[in-house]
Nucleic acid binder design. Sequence first.
DNA 1: TCGTTTCCCACGAAATCCCATTGTCACCCA
DNA 2: TGGGTGACAATGGGATTTCGTGGGAAACGA
Lengths: 186, 186
Amino acid sequence: MHGQAAHSGERGSFACAAGVRGEVALEHLFQGSALNAVDAKGRVSVPAFLRSVIERRGDARTIVLAKHSQFACLDAYDPAYAALKHAKLERLLEKGETEPDAELAYQQRNLMAFAATEETPYDSSGRIVFPPMMRRKGGIEDLALFLGTGETFQIWNPQTLLGDKNIPEDLKDIARYRLEERGVTP
Amino acid sequence: MHGQAAHSGERGSFACAAGVRGEVALEHLFQGSALNAVDAKGRVSVPAFLRSVIERRGDARTIVLAKHSQFACLDAYDPAYAALKHAKLERLLEKGETEPDAELAYQQRNLMAFAATEETPYDSSGRIVFPPMMRRKGGIEDLALFLGTGETFQIWNPQTLLGDKNIPEDLKDIARYRLEERGVTP
DNA sequence: TCGTTTCCCACGAAATCCCATTGTCACCCA
DNA sequence: TGGGTGACAATGGGATTTCGTGGGAAACGA
């Protein structure tokens, strides 16, 4: 258990390669993987190394959950990132404005980005209670696989990930390792 | 013993071949080699001459580990370099977004760059504890061979390197020298 | 009152910190 | 020139804290 929570450490404040055309830069990125249990009450520990990033980005002890736009998993991030995401959408709109469906696409994305999300706080021990709707959308059962992806992190049902054709084999190896580490081989 | 901490020295601060079209440049490069022991707890000293590069690139005392894409070894770098990598991906996405598979390719790369890596801090004496997953992926046992490769550095099981057909003989000589230096000849 | 949800405490394993030791090298000063 | 000596790198072992997790008590809404 405990994945590799430890390695996260508390420091790691590194300068970010920023300055991409006025974009807000993220100084701290989500990285690493862990497999945690979902208990009978629907509680899960958010891995400590992810929490440390959240708390460095802002002072919230909260995560935002959304269905991932492409994968059968959940996308998660901190509240501060939500604002950033909004700015990104704006920029996308400006870029593709010439295209006919641009406005519609923008509205749709905006809905997805904000209406279709749930914000959940984690307690002093770092656990959230999984909102039932999100839990279902992510197909999460009794194990939650956390994957850092830089700006955000993903939460998977490990079995779903293993069955996804679009996931690189090297990444599946990691999922298998985490399962094995926990004694779930079948 | 203590390898050759010395040869590496503390210098090596040279200007980097920078200025690749607005890209963030790395001012300090990893170079040199060392062979260190992995103890029973899985701890290894990161050679001081590599740490000094890490700390000049940013203020982190942390290394990022990943499986090397081609060799049977680990690839390692500092968090600042990871951020740089991320910025590159972002830029690629915005540029080639018109293509249909661009988004998927982006997601896959991001997963590999962040989920398939582990960040581990080194303590005041310069040691990391090898994350078990990475240790296995790199086939690292009780000796770790560090090789600087400029932007990043590699960590090998010396025996694996000696058995790799794609490694130049001159480099194997270095590995042999480090082993001999340490009294491991068989 | 009953069923949830939220909070709090407890435990075991594992990771992190701290101190101690030793060999090398660099430097200094006779 | 050469021996001493101080600093630093690499390594070993023990002590302490943190993390993930389970269970129960208290608060809340219906």
